[in-house]
Design a protein around this nucleic acid. Structure first.
Lengths: 263, 263
DNA sequence: CGCTGAGTTGATGACAATCAACTCGGGTGG
DNA sequence: CCACCCGAGTTGATTGTCATCAACTCAGCG
């Protein structure tokens, strides 16, 4: 029996409470953002059966490790995770941040060793699907395949934006883009705290995480972030991101909400 | 009636001849690399019907333009194309090079304006599929959906490698990676000239194209490429790429053939 | 109360960008 | 047919952005 329910690394007891550790798929609050969006009730039963269990993983622990054969694919249920690859000099490149609803661990051949790592940024909860079950779900259920294609296509768009950032944008623009992206994605989920904090979200990334996603060093992130903050565009403080000048930042970063919408 | 048949920007009269400009899908030499790999004969008829026509596009012309609503999706039949996005300062980032068999112009919602551009590097031939036909092909035919997912997943892997390159690798490593990637992809297609040129492929990219893919400037590509060439690892000359030390380069670039295989 | 990890700030250095001049080869038009 | 032109590539000089190294602050915590 859970004391409460965590989303985004923040205790949301006051917002949602689950009485059991095992959420039912049919009642899942993030299902509309997940692979199982819009499934018929029958398909949902299937998917529920495929799901082995929910796991909780502590912040900084790895969910997937590059080069290993993994047993499961996962839907991220709560918290933030980083999907990354490692270079031979030990540096890493975060390719995307997974947020609740995101599907983690799929690749074209599930029997190959996985080519990326996934690490929990906050404590996370995941729904685990054994890869064999996932494979047959994809074989049997066209809706799931279509939805996975759709999610992949949207990821691809974001990936291309990351490439543009990494290859052609200044440190300032890269930071602005990343922060706007995450801000908007959280808002799309409806998981930010509405009301008095309308322009702010819980934000668990360290400057080193940001550096690993933007292709910079933590030191340079510190300097550049300070500059953006001093200009009054936004604030990152106490694990919270506040956007003051969304439009100006959007222009700076060439960011556009449609880059991260899923509907 | 065609005089001959071009693949890879080179005239291959001596290798393959088609008597009509319109290749039949059932007899298509690159089908095994395309979206229509492994389709049943019945599905093939469907796909043949969906295909409107083949087009030839001159080098440097655009096939798709960012922000526009496009009528068609395409299978690249012959030649090379660049998929890219443009930053506000006018610089561009090539996100991938499309080679024969690659599918171009898909995105999760085909009715949205397309978010990337595609430009012919060599003269190219494409098979055009009106987006409505493609949409219904995807709705009706699970094999096509699965295959598109598979192709997308493989693209995603390469995209992540590009991100790692752009974010965390030196100019030398980026070049080595790109050249090995393209070399291997061409070899996988079996479109290189076998025999006396076993370690070489036709290579139509300019140094500026390479720069746009690696996030460098053309000047720096020139210097760095010269350095790699002087070290005897490879040669780029007269629109031809020759690899002398595949293993050493692979190590330098952290490249691995499995990154680009499709089977 | 000291330890730890995250963030800040300064000094210096390296890699790649920029600006500019030049070569070379292939195509074109006079 | 040859001169010229143009685009691609090369090379040198200089600049700039970001990396590196190092010292320090500060908050949280055992």
């Amino acid at each position: 029996m859970d004391a409460g329910w965590e989303v985004m690394g923040i205790n949301y007891d006051n917002f949602v409470t689950v009485t059991s550790a095992e959420t039912q798929c049919s009642a899942c609050p993030i299902r509309q953002f997940s692979l199982f969006k819009n499934l018929s009730d029958i398909s949902l039963v299937e998917s529920q059966q495929s799901r082995k269990t929910q796991y909780r993983i502590k912040a900084k622990r790895r969910l997937l490790e590059e080069g290993q054969h993994n047993k499961y694919t996962y839907t991220l249920f709560s918290g933030w995770a980083a999907i990354y690859q490692t270079a031979d000099n030990g540096e890493r490149q975060i390719c995307r941040f997974a947020l609740p609803g995101d599907f983690i661990g799929y690749q074209s051949d599930l029997n190959d060793p996985i080519y990326y790592s996934a690490q929990a940024i906050t404590d996370i909860t995941v729904c685990a699907f054994p890869k064999e079950e996932m494979q047959s779900l994809l074989t049997d259920n066209k809706d799931v395949t279509s939805r996975l294609l759709e999610m992949h296509s949207r990821n691809m768009r974001l990936s291309q934006q990351y490439m543009l950032s990494l290859g052609r944008k200044s440190a300032k623009q890269r930071l602005a883009f990343l922060l706007l992206e995450l801000y908007q994605r959280i808002k799309n989920l409806g998981l930010y705290i509405p009301g008095s904090y309308d322009n702010s979200i819980a934000f668990p990334l360290s400057q080193e995480d940001i550096a690993d996603a933007t292709g910079l060093t933590a030191v340079h992130v510190s300097r550049t972030l300070r500059q953006i903050m001093d200009e009054g565009h936004l604030e990152v403080k106490n694990r919270r991101l506040t956007i003051y000048k969304e439009e100006a930042l959007g222009e700076l970063a060439q960011f556009n909400k449609s880059m991260v919408t899923d509907n």
